[in-house]
Simulated scan of single mutants.
Amino acid sequence: MIPEAHQTESVRLYEAWSFPTKWECTDALLRGHRFNDSSIFYYHGRWHAPNLGGPWQEHPRSPIIQENPHIARPAGRVVVVGDRILSFEQDCFPVYGTKVRSLEITELTPSTYREQPASRSPLFGPSWRLWTQGGMHHIDSHPLDFHQWIAAVGGGRHIGWPIPEEWQRATC
């Protein structure tokens, strides 16, 4: 597991000693910057480091995205499906975590990187449900089988925000 640890200016790797309640930090993969929402993934036989423990190096194209509040901040774990790599990004316009978008990484080598939108529209965003009214900011998806997936998502509602009339429903 790699939890958010930007306050420590590191990307920390944790191992489960007694899943899901006991975890231990086994390594700091990167140090020296405020890394936000880090995600690593295994693709074509590599972690983009000699092994999971590193040494890790910043990709020569990093930072990949700058000054685009619609896709510059990750929104969860990168998912590899066959030869496809899907990345989820927070749409932080006009505020943090308004929506979640998906991108497909179409080229990834130790020296190159390319991506394109995986869908035209955001995957999800604010809705009439109380816990999503302030927006949606994370997804962690897992395949159940070839055609079905399950996902945990993160949303929020700012205390005191009124419920917009168009989001109100009498029943679910």
Rank of each mutant, 00 (worst) to 15 (best):
E166C: 13
G76D: 03
L130T: 10
F19Q: 05
E24Y: 14
P74T: 03
E24P: 12
A151F: 11
P126K: 10
S39M: 10
I2E: 05
R12Y: 08
P162L: 02
D140F: 10
Y14R: 07
G135H: 04
H44T: 08
G155F: 01
V78G: 05
G125I: 06
T112D: 09
A72W: 02
H138I: 05
Q168V: 07
Q7T: 04
Q148W: 14
Y42H: 13
Q148L: 02
C172Y: 14
R157M: 14
S141Y: 12
W128Q: 15
P55T: 15
H137I: 03
E115T: 04
T171K: 13
G156Y: 11
Y113G: 01
D140L: 03
A28W: 05
R84Q: 04
Q148F: 12
S39N: 09
E107I: 11
P94T: 10
F124M: 13
N51C: 11
P55S: 15
R101V: 03
G76Q: 04
P117E: 01
H137W: 15
S38E: 07
G76N: 06
W56M: 08
D91S: 07
S18H: 02
F93H: 05
S18D: 03
L123Y: 01
N51Q: 13
T171R: 14
D140N: 04
D83G: 12
G155Q: 03
A49D: 12
